[in-house]
Amino acid sequence: MANKTYADASSALEGLLFDGMTIAAGGFGLCGIPENLIAAIRDSGVKDLTIYSNNAGVDDFGLGLLLETRQVKKMVSSYVGENAEFMRQYLSGELELEFNPQGTLAERMRAGGAGIPGFYTKTGVGTLIAEGKEHKEFDGETYILERGIVADLSIVKAWKGDTQGSLVYRKTARNFNPLAASCGKVTVAEVEELVNVGELEPDSIHTPGVYVQRLLKGDHEKRIEKRTIREA
Results as ranks from 00 to 15, higher is better:
2 A>P: 13
2 A>L: 12
3 N>K: 08
4 K>I: 11
13 L>K: 02
13 L>F: 03
14 E>T: 14
15 G>C: 13
21 M>P: 02
24 A>W: 03
25 A>Q: 07
28 F>G: 03
28 F>I: 09
29 G>E: 02
29 G>A: 11
30 L>V: 08
34 P>S: 04
37 L>W: 03
38 I>L: 05
39 A>D: 12
41 I>S: 08
42 R>V: 11
42 R>A: 15
48 D>S: 10
53 S>E: 08
54 N>F: 13
58 V>L: 10
61 F>S: 10
62 G>K: 00
62 G>C: 09
64 G>D: 01
64 G>W: 06
65 L>T: 05
66 L>I: 05
67 L>Q: 00
70 R>Q: 07
70 R>I: 05
71 Q>K: 12
71 Q>D: 09
71 Q>C: 11
72 V>F: 05
75 M>I: 14
76 V>E: 00
77 S>R: 01
77 S>K: 02
78 S>L: 02
79 Y>K: 07
81 G>R: 08
82 E>H: 12
82 E>N: 08
83 N>W: 00
83 N>S: 10
84 A>M: 10
84 A>G: 01
88 R>V: 06
89 Q>C: 03
90 Y>D: 00
90 Y>N: 03
90 Y>K: 05
91 L>P: 01
94 E>W: 07
95 L>P: 03
97 L>N: 14
100 N>S: 11
101 P>I: 06
101 P>A: 03
102 Q>H: 15
103 G>E: 09
105 L>D: 12
107 E>Q: 14
110 R>A: 07
111 A>W: 07
111 A>S: 15
112 G>K: 04
113 G>E: 00
113 G>M: 12
115 G>T: 10
116 I>K: 09
117 P>Q: 04
120 Y>G: 04
120 Y>H: 14
121 T>N: 06
123 T>K: 13
125 V>W: 01
126 G>K: 04
130 A>I: 01
131 E>G: 05
131 E>I: 13
132 G>M: 03
132 G>K: 01
134 E>A: 12
136 K>V: 10
139 D>F: 12
139 D>I: 06
139 D>R: 15
141 E>A: 07
141 E>F: 02
142 T>N: 09
142 T>S: 11
146 E>D: 08
147 R>Y: 06
149 I>K: 02
152 D>N: 11
157 K>A: 09
158 A>K: 00
159 W>G: 03
161 G>Q: 07
164 Q>A: 14
165 G>W: 09
166 S>E: 08
168 V>S: 01
170 R>I: 06
171 K>D: 11
172 T>C: 10
174 R>W: 09
174 R>T: 13
176 F>D: 00
178 P>M: 10
179 L>T: 00
179 L>A: 11
181 A>D: 05
184 G>H: 04
190 E>W: 07
192 E>F: 08
194 L>W: 05
196 N>Y: 08
199 E>N: 15
200 L>A: 04
200 L>C: 02
202 P>W: 11
202 P>D: 14
204 S>W: 12
204 S>A: 13
207 T>F: 04
207 T>K: 02
208 P>I: 04
209 G>E: 00
209 G>F: 07
210 V>L: 09
213 Q>V: 03
213 Q>W: 07
214 R>K: 15
219 D>P: 01
219 D>M: 12
223 R>Y: 13
223 R>I: 05
224 I>N: 11
228 T>I: 14
228 T>V: 14
229 I>M: 15
